[in-house]
Amino acid sequence: MQFAIEMTSVFKTYPDFSLDNLHLRLPHGQVMGLVGANGAGKSTTLRLLMGVIKADSGVVEVLGNKLPQGQVAAKQNIGYASEDIRLYKSETLAWHMNFIKNIYPSWDDAYAKDLARKFDIKTEQKIKGFSHGQRVKACLLLILARRPQLVILDEPTTGLDPVARHEVLSELADILRDENRSVLFSSHNTQDVEQLSDTITFLHKGKLLDSQDKEIYLDRWRRVVCTGHIDWGNAPESVTDIKHNGSLHELTIDQFNDTVINQLSNMGLTVASIDRMTLEQIFLANVFSKKRNEVRS
């Protein structure tokens, strides 16, 4: 079993949305950030991986188990938390811990207590008295203390205040040090993804835009400011966006290398600056480039 997650040619169609020919692979011990705007298909992808949605066609395999048939064996080793998960509000966190402990033999009591202390949550308190941040932390405690091989998180930091977000991200960074654990998490907060991931996957309108190692990915994109004359007609193929500001042109470049700079110089352009881009800028450039291509075609 080489991959923790393997999706091959997966299609899932709803009346107003479809996941289109998705190929996704997460090697063991890797952390993959799934980035996409609302409605991109992130949650649908994660639900397919939990076996609660059946794909119309294609193969979904998690920890060596084909889904949905093998979902019981797969879910024994998956910790899943999503922003729409709620706990039983009339019961305490300790009751939930006991409930989970009865189902997962791998439950680690000492680690659970340690997490409760780190997250500063009272296990004897009823869930209805928890704030949103405390509820998220309680969910994370319940999945992490069972020490799963694969952690799937759907928007884990959405709606958290800066302190709670920092605590959650620190704990996630801690668990990610375990080389045997694979993590797939979705977020529209690209800062979180940039901070935690080894691999980045972009989804847009149900299609996979790109999936690559984070460092290679960040290294591949540049923002180049130059003077001279350029428009879409004569721009090199790797230019995905051009913004004009007086005599200055701001170019967004995918697959950046020295050849692109030479091409720009040969066109008579003077390069004023070359900057690396943040993941958010790359994501936006990717989405807008996709939209532009859709309009053109």
Binding site: I85, R86, Y88
Partner: peptide
Amino acid sequence: KEQTLPFVMSLPITPTD
């Protein structure tokens, strides 16, 4: 309604279970 179903379905069970 109270969205505890996703919590239950994250456990090692199938819809038939």
